[in-house]
Simulated assay, not measured.
Amino acid sequence: MAGGNTIVFNSAAFSIVRESAMKTKFLHHDWWCYQVLMGAGGKVYYDPKPQIDYRQHQNNVFGKNTGHAAILKRISGLLSGQYSQWIDNNLLALEACHSLLTADNLSIVRGLQEARRRGGISCAIFLWKNGIKRQTCVANIGLYVSVLLPRK
């Protein structure tokens, strides 16, 4: 949703992120901030007009989301089970921060954990019914393909 170098927090949001960092570990700080703040009932204001250029460096985990190499890297992560592992880790981290989440969002986290245990079409139905999605059509297709593939 947002690159870490472009996120601005108010004091309440910063307090939630700081407390969550004391309760768990997370791999992608920008994605974690979005998840925990939305889970806590926060609001995101998204400016569709870029205010800075995307900053690339050798150690980027993902890198810019364009080009054939980026697409192949994401497909590889999907098929290898790497993305599935990241989802599991994020759900465990959200569970560790349960006291920061709204009751409704905690219920969704726990429901998604159970749906992922059942897997397949059951998980896809859970995603659909709960409006869980990614930012683009292609990413949404990848999300649904990932839950329909056998887990590694």
Rank of each mutant, 00 (worst) to 15 (best):
W32N: 06
W32M: 00
Q35F: 03
L37M: 09
L37P: 03
M38E: 07
M38A: 07
A40T: 02
K43M: 04
K43Y: 07
V44I: 14
V44P: 03
Y45L: 10
Y45V: 09
Y46E: 05
Y46V: 09
Y46R: 15
D47F: 14
D47W: 14
K49V: 13
P50H: 10
I52S: 07
I52F: 07
I52W: 10
Y54K: 13
R55S: 04
Q56R: 14
H57I: 01
Q58H: 12
N59R: 13
N60Y: 05
V61M: 12
F62M: 05
K64L: 08
K64F: 11
K64Y: 15
N65W: 14
N65F: 11
T66S: 12
T66V: 08
G67F: 08
G67R: 09
G67V: 03
H68D: 04
I71R: 15
I71Q: 12
L72D: 10
K73T: 03
K73M: 07
R74K: 13
R74F: 06
I75Y: 11
I75K: 09
S76T: 11
S76K: 14
G77Q: 13
G77W: 12
L78W: 09
G81C: 04
Q82C: 00
S84A: 07
Q85T: 13
D88K: 11
D88H: 11
N89I: 00
N89M: 09
N90Y: 11
N90H: 12
L92K: 15
L92S: 14
L92H: 14
L94S: 01
C97Q: 06
C97I: 02
H98Y: 10
L100F: 05
L101K: 09
T102A: 02
T102C: 02
A103V: 06
D104K: 15
S107N: 15
I108N: 05
V109L: 03
V109Y: 04
R110S: 03
G111I: 05
G111M: 09
L112Q: 02
Q113Y: 08
E114V: 00
E114Q: 15
R116I: 08
R118C: 02
G119D: 08
G119K: 09
G120I: 05
G120T: 04
G120S: 06
I121W: 15
S122K: 12
C123R: 10
I125V: 11
I125A: 02
F126M: 01
F126A: 00
L127I: 01
